[in-house]
Amino acid sequence: MNNKNLTLRDIKSGKKCTVKDLLSKGKVRNRLLDLGFVKNSIIEVLQKSPSGDPVAYFVKGCVIALRSEDAKNILVKEI
């Protein structure tokens, strides 16, 4: 698998990863930064919603739900 383009959407439930880069722009980018999706912060993938999207993530001590459209703009490295 091409590790370079691994996004948050590809990480399975229960796994952890660190943020490498944010591709989203504008308001969404700012909101993600506010919520702690900054470079090197650790994200744990919690559970999916009943339909599989959105997914809940554990970041900076809080649970944040993101749609897959937003999660695919967060480049990560699995740990």
Binding site: S24, V28, R31, L32, L35, P54, A56, C62, V63, I64, A65, L66, R67, E69, D70
Partner: peptide, 11 residues
């Protein structure tokens, strides 16, 4: 198109 959905699930 749908905008983003970023929601905190509080404790």
């Amino acid at each position: 198109v749908p905008s983003s959905f970023i929601l905190e699930l509080p404790p």
